[in-house]
Simulated scan of single mutants.
Amino acid sequence: MKTEPGECSIDDVMNAPGRTVSWFGVRNYQARNFMRDAMRPGDAVLFYHSSCPHPGVAGIARIASGPHPDECQFDANSGYYDLKSSREAPRWVAVDVEGLIKIPLVPIAELRARPELSGMRILQRGNRLSITPVTKEEFRFIADHLIQFPRD
């Protein structure tokens, strides 16, 4: 799951009550469908910072809830308001994400340099989705070879 640090950083998540935030504001049908249909509570998440001076994996999180209506779609004052959405038939969902650990940044250049990750969706040219699946093998490779876990 990628986010701009100015919108919601790994520090924001780790400092939130219960280290949990709602992943709101997704307005792409494919990304919405990943949240709605594929994500389950307990699933591991690579927390990725994007559109910033140093993009890359900044933490590990997990899905903390099933999909629920994104409340922003109903708020006319929100930048994520959707006039066509209603409480009876919401178009957009959110999931809650719990931060588990902040890690030293694994830069995108490091991810791209690894042939084992060449098929990773987030690294594909033109990928603009804020949510992309990661295979178990990709996640394990990153965890085993690229993340320097704090020694606390």
Rank of each mutant, 00 (worst) to 15 (best):
K2P: 00
K2A: 04
K2W: 04
P5S: 02
G6Q: 08
E7I: 14
S9W: 02
M14P: 04
M14K: 04
N15K: 14
G18P: 08
T20P: 05
W23I: 06
G25K: 01
N28L: 13
Q30G: 13
Q30C: 13
R32D: 07
N33M: 11
M35L: 13
R36T: 00
D37S: 07
A38P: 05
R40Q: 13
R40Y: 09
D43M: 08
V45E: 02
V45T: 05
F47K: 01
F47L: 05
S50C: 12
P55E: 05
A58K: 00
G59T: 03
I60N: 04
I60F: 06
A61C: 11
R62Q: 11
R62C: 09
P67H: 06
P69Y: 11
Q73P: 10
F74T: 10
S78Y: 08
S78K: 03
G79I: 10
D82F: 10
K84Q: 15
S85V: 05
S85R: 10
E88N: 12
P90V: 04
A94I: 01
A94G: 02
A94Y: 00
D96I: 04
V97N: 01
G99F: 03
I101R: 05
I103K: 01
L105P: 00
V106H: 02
P107Q: 08
P107K: 03
E110K: 12
R112Y: 06
R114P: 03
P115D: 05
P115M: 02
E116P: 09
L117N: 04
G119L: 14
R121Y: 08
I122D: 01
L123Q: 03
L123I: 07
G126R: 08
N127F: 12
V134Q: 02
T135A: 13
E137K: 13
E137R: 13
E138A: 07
I142E: 01
I142P: 01
A143Y: 14
D144R: 07
H145G: 11
Q148V: 15
P150G: 04
D152H: 15
